[in-house]
Deep mutational scan, measured.
Amino acid sequence: SEEEIREAFRVFDKDGNGYISAADLRHVMTNLGEKLTDEEVDEMIREADIDGDGQVNYEDFVQMMTA
């Protein structure tokens, strides 16, 4: 549901600035027990970053979650 997606976005957007940065993503993945290299984190950001601004905004996140 849209509310679940919004809630998930809030979990990833640690600093609440409306964007998921590589640092935000790394933090959440580490908490989930996933040890990722910087390259892996950057690749995840690139794949999710639809508009190419280097971070994942809510619209990018929705597209990723509903793809």
Rank of each mutant, 00 (worst) to 15 (best):
A67R: 14
I50C: 07
G18E: 01
D38W: 11
Y19D: 01
E47Q: 15
G18V: 01
D49T: 13
A22D: 04
E47P: 03
E7W: 06
N17S: 12
R6D: 01
S21G: 04
G18L: 02
Q55L: 13
V56M: 05
I20K: 00
F12E: 01
M64L: 11
A23H: 11
V11Q: 11
N17R: 10
G18H: 02
F12K: 03
Y19S: 04
F9Q: 00
R6P: 00
F61H: 00
F9V: 01
K14P: 08
K14V: 10
E34Y: 15
S1F: 11
D60Q: 14
L25H: 00
R26D: 01
F61I: 15
V41I: 12
D49P: 06
G52T: 10
F12S: 01
L36G: 02
G18W: 02
K35T: 09
D13Q: 01
G16F: 04
D15W: 08
A48S: 08
V28F: 03
K35F: 11
D38P: 13
R10K: 09
M64Q: 07
V41T: 04
M44E: 01
S1C: 12
V56S: 01
M44Y: 06
Q63W: 09
E40C: 13
R10A: 07
F9Y: 01
D24S: 06
Y58W: 12
K14N: 06
G16W: 03
G33E: 04
D24I: 07
A8D: 01
A67W: 02
I45E: 01
T30Q: 12
E43L: 14
E4W: 14
A23P: 05
A48P: 01
I5Q: 02
D51Q: 10
K35D: 07
T37G: 05
M29A: 03
E39H: 11
A23V: 10
R6G: 01
E2W: 15
M64I: 09
L36P: 04
V41S: 02
E43C: 14
Y19C: 04
T37W: 05
I20A: 01
V28S: 01
R46G: 06
Q63A: 10
A48W: 13
D49K: 15
E7P: 01
F61G: 00
D60R: 15
S1G: 07
D13F: 02
D49R: 15
K35R: 13
E59I: 06
D51A: 12
A67F: 02
L36R: 09
A8Y: 09
D60W: 15
I50S: 08
A48D: 02
T30R: 15
R26F: 06
R26M: 05
F9L: 06
G33L: 13
D24L: 08
F61C: 03
D42M: 11
K35W: 13
I5E: 00
I45G: 01
V28W: 03
L25E: 00
D49A: 11
